[in-house]
Amino acid sequence: MRPDESDALVHDPRGGMPRLIEIMRRLRDPATGCPWDIEQDFASIAPYTIEEAYEVADAIAREAWGELEGELGDLLLQTVYHTQMGAERGLFDFDSVANAIADKMVARHPHVFGNESRDKSADQQTSDWEAIKAAERAGKAAHGVLDDVALALPALTRAVKLQKRAARVGFDWPEIGQVVDKIAEEAHELAEARASMTEAEVVEEFGDMLFAIANLARHLNLDPEEALRATNAKFTRRFNAVEAALRAQGKRPEDSDLAEMDALWEAAKAAERAP
């Protein structure tokens, strides 16, 4: 692309994806680009990619629809960033990435793009999806059941995915009561033995308990990350109410005590539950 064509595209408010791709190419130009952008690599950009995905999820959770467009744009920029770096190394480019996911979507939806019937339940579609994914993995180099579960996933989410993979080959508690018993066992062991444990052992035992709790969420068909986010929001909301009640008395939390704050907490709970 000639310099004048590049400038015209970069400043075209309706340039769409070609505009964004060209902007990133210019930012990464070794001679004329931005020094910070030029220095980045896949590893250094990956944390920003994860952060932007969370900000998209946050806008959706808050129903902040006016913010969602911008957050989606920030996330899209991360894809463009990685594809530009891939193109520079001859690994892939934006078109090949887009074509790869398009091919995958067509292959995984034969009931939409092929000859299979759409007359199936959502659960059956999910089962079919997993079967297709399993076949795709089998077509690659042989590997273990738990391979390719992404390491960078949030720990609770990854725990559930690891457990689902193991469950497919029969490695799972058959009854939910056994999962509950395991949580109680892990909690009891940690409470009883913490005084005699090393710090590393305490961390390990606590991790075992969290893993068992994630297993319970899976058996209940719950997303533990979603459940914990909701509880975090509830805690924040109620503690804010405690602070507000104290401010009305000219006090701060550090001027109060547990008994008073607990009473205000219970009042905040009651106010939330009131019809």
Rank of each mutant, 00 (worst) to 15 (best):
L20S: 14
E69L: 06
H188Q: 09
W173H: 11
D257N: 15
A270G: 03
A59D: 05
K120S: 10
D58M: 01
F235R: 01
F94H: 12
A214G: 15
I21E: 14
A268T: 00
A142L: 08
F206T: 11
A244W: 01
F92L: 11
D93H: 05
L146N: 15
I45A: 07
H82C: 07
L156S: 11
I132H: 04
K140W: 06
F239A: 02
A152N: 13
A212E: 00
R238D: 00
W65V: 05
T157C: 08
G114M: 06
L27R: 10
P110L: 03
P275S: 13
N240S: 13
G139F: 04
A268L: 02
D37N: 10
K251M: 13
E69V: 08
R62M: 04
E130R: 12
E226H: 10
A248M: 08
R238M: 01
D255Q: 07
R2E: 15
L9G: 07
T198Y: 04
L246H: 07
T198A: 11
P30W: 02
R62F: 00
V80N: 04
L153M: 14
A166L: 15
P154H: 04
I183H: 02
D95Y: 06
S117A: 05
R137D: 15
D7E: 15
A166V: 09
P110Y: 00
I101E: 08
A187G: 10
L151T: 13
E39T: 10
A155P: 06
K104R: 12
A150K: 07
P18T: 03
A141Q: 11
N99L: 14
E205D: 08
A87K: 13
A263I: 03
R168E: 15
A274C: 08
D123L: 10
V10P: 02
D41A: 02
D255V: 04
G70S: 08
L27N: 11
H82E: 11
A270R: 09
V160I: 14
A270E: 09
R237L: 04
L258A: 10
L68Y: 01
Q78H: 01
N99A: 15
R252W: 01
